[in-house]
Design a binder for these strands. Structure first.
Lengths: 145, 145
DNA sequence: TCTTAATCAGACAAAAAACTCTGAAACAAA
DNA sequence: TTTGTTTCAGAGTTTTTTGTCTGATTAAGA
């Protein structure tokens, strides 16, 4: 089995999207977020720390502390989160794992996958959290149970 | 770091492509194949066994035995190898890991990724090993060192 | 000031994926 | 019939990823 993004990255994306559904600087504890995206609190906590280090979200310690979206939702793209957690190797390496895959020595899917890969990158780069907000809010609300 | 296919799947694809570069029923030992695709012999051996079980390649025991492409190259597609090793969950599950991702409750990239995912599936399904043969032979030869 | 609730750092544990080893069975060729 | 080379099954090991625990630090509110 395989996926595009690691578990960490999926949860990081979900967490950031969750934060983007609320007014800027609204604080949420790791516990609240973890319950909402249905993942272990400690694990989510670690991921949020990583994203704090990379500057996408901010944190506040102490009683009634938590995490918040630090950068304006109009300036954050999904690719920024992916880049912070998984890196961008996915968009560089040969999808079949061949070494030296290039225009001169292409793998059997070099051209077709290259095109799709670029479109995937574009998909994650073109829209900001602000632009995705409506659909995000809708999805977040559907997670309530 | 993430990739589309697991290491097993990448090597399985490479091995099958390697076999498809030669006339049907040509035998290669696991050692020969592993050296060509630059991977551990024992690991490649295991992967080839999996593909043998799924019927894509055949095997012959004993002295001067080895593995060979069992199905006609005109009837094998890359998706068949992917399906045999990694399965097809990649083409079913939400790329952001959200539960219940659907038209009614779409994730923020449901539509765009859905389209790209279908195109990726098509890419792996449309062409057979036979149709990819020229570019495969070229790539295989470039691996010689 | 004390209690409580939060982040955070680092070590730790468990599970999954990647990779190795051993020994048995098959079989070609000497 | 013996020797050498191979697949193959299953167990074992290593590494990576996922997930947990502990304790220190921070800070709001009673």
């Amino acid at each position: 089995m395989t996926v595009i993004f690691s578990k960490k990255c999926e949860l990081g994306l979900q967490a950031v999207l969750y934060l983007s559904a609320f007014p800027k600087n609204t604080l949420f504890s790791a516990l609240e977020i973890s319950e909402k995206i249905n993942a272990p609190k400690e694990f989510v906590s670690k991921i949020l720390q990583t994203l704090t280090t990379s500057g996408i979200i901010g944190s506040k310690k102490g009683n009634s502390g938590g995490f918040f979206l630090k950068i304006d939702p109009g300036s954050v793209r999904l690719i920024d989160v992916v880049s912070a957690i998984d890196g961008l190797d996915l968009f560089r390496n040969c999808v079949l794992g061949f070494p030296g895959c290039s225009v001169d020595e292409p793998c059997p899917v070099h051209e077709t996958w290259g095109k799709l890969r670029n479109e995937t990158y574009t998909m994650l780069s073109n829209q900001t959290l602000a632009e995705l907000r409506d659909i995000t809010v809708n999805k977040i609300n559907s997670l309530k149970k």
